[in-house]
Structures are given as C-alpha cells and as structure tokens.
Simulated scan of single mutants.
Amino acid sequence: MKRHPDPEALGTLLRHVLELLDGDVAKVYQDQGLPEYRPRFSPIVRALVAEGPMSVRDLAGAVGVTHSAASQTASQMARAGLVTHSTDPRDNRRRLITLTTKAHALLPMITAEWNATLEAMAELDGEVSMPLAELLTEVTEAIRRRPFVERISAAYERQAASEGSR
C-alpha cells in the first residue's frame, strides 16, 4: 500500500510535492542524455541568458532564492561544466557567474524542456482548484506580511493563556 504524507505535516507534504515534480523533470533530462543536469539549474541558466554574467547576489535576486542557495547551485553547475566563476573586471572583490560554451550548446534542449514543463504545469493546474504558482505566491506574500515564526509564537501564547485559565 502506498502511503501519502500526513496532510498536517505541511513541510513534509511540500517537500513531497517538490520531489515529485523535480524528480520527473530530472527524469526528462536523464532521458535526454543529461543525467548531471538538475531542474534547479534552469532558472539560473535563464537568468544568465537574459542578463549575461552576474554575481551570486544578483543571481539570487534574479531567481528569487537565498544567496546561499544560488551559491550552492552555481557550484554544482560549475562541477557539471555549465558555468564558470571569474573576477569582475570592474570590481575585484566580486565574482561573476558566466555560462560556458557547453551550457550555450545545451540551450535548445533546456529551452524545449522548460516550455514542455510549463505546458505540463498548465495541464496540472487545470486539474486542481487553484494554479499551484498562484497559491504558492499567495502563501509567500502572506508569510512576508507576517512571518510564520510570529504566527507560531502567537499560537503558543494563546495555548498558554487557555491552559492558564483552566
């Protein structure tokens, strides 16, 4: 019997959905002969194609991830031969991430997969009550307005007050 994550264990459920989506995208790349290519590389590739060489900080902002996540992904991409790190000629303290010739040669395949993924996501969105990206954007905005840690602390306080009044 196949088990599903506990719907109350939200973090587990979110990771499970991400594993399902990313795992299948990774299978597509593997089937295309790119076993070292990861789905998390595509937003970075797309940003570098659009903007040219970028610092890790700028790249993180462009794709909407933390500096640490962008740095880790860029390091993985460098190991796969997809990007290089070089000193910014205008500021020796900054390092720039640049797509390699290998990455440029893969762009048609990466673009085709990206477009197919967008089409598949639109199909999936048609089967659920709300487009996933729309829902996740709403959740992100709500958490930015009031961080989750504040919500947890308030719940603790309400529980403590309720137990104290018994």
Score class of each variant (00 low, 15 high):
residue 1 M to S: 15
residue 2 K to D: 10
residue 5 P to G: 04
residue 11 G to S: 14
residue 11 G to A: 13
residue 18 L to D: 11
residue 24 D to H: 12
residue 25 V to N: 01
residue 26 A to N: 04
residue 28 V to W: 06
residue 33 G to W: 07
residue 36 E to I: 07
residue 38 R to V: 14
residue 42 S to K: 11
residue 45 V to K: 00
residue 47 A to G: 01
residue 54 M to T: 03
residue 55 S to W: 00
residue 57 R to F: 14
residue 59 L to E: 00
residue 61 G to W: 00
residue 63 V to R: 09
residue 64 G to C: 02
residue 65 V to P: 11
residue 73 T to E: 14
residue 76 Q to T: 04
residue 76 Q to M: 08
residue 77 M to P: 04
residue 82 L to N: 00
residue 83 V to M: 01
residue 86 S to H: 07
residue 86 S to C: 05
residue 88 D to C: 04
residue 89 P to N: 02
residue 90 R to I: 03
residue 98 T to Y: 00
residue 99 L to V: 01
residue 100 T to D: 04
residue 100 T to W: 10
residue 102 K to R: 09
residue 112 A to R: 14
residue 114 W to V: 11
residue 115 N to V: 13
residue 118 L to G: 04
residue 119 E to W: 03
residue 120 A to E: 08
residue 126 G to K: 02
residue 128 V to F: 14
residue 131 P to F: 11
residue 132 L to D: 06
residue 133 A to M: 08
residue 140 T to E: 07
residue 141 E to R: 03
residue 143 I to Q: 07
residue 144 R to G: 05
residue 145 R to S: 13
residue 148 F to D: 03
residue 148 F to L: 08
residue 149 V to K: 06
residue 157 E to S: 02
residue 160 A to Y: 10
residue 160 A to L: 14
residue 163 E to Q: 15
residue 164 G to I: 02
residue 166 R to C: 12
residue 166 R to L: 11
residue 166 R to E: 10
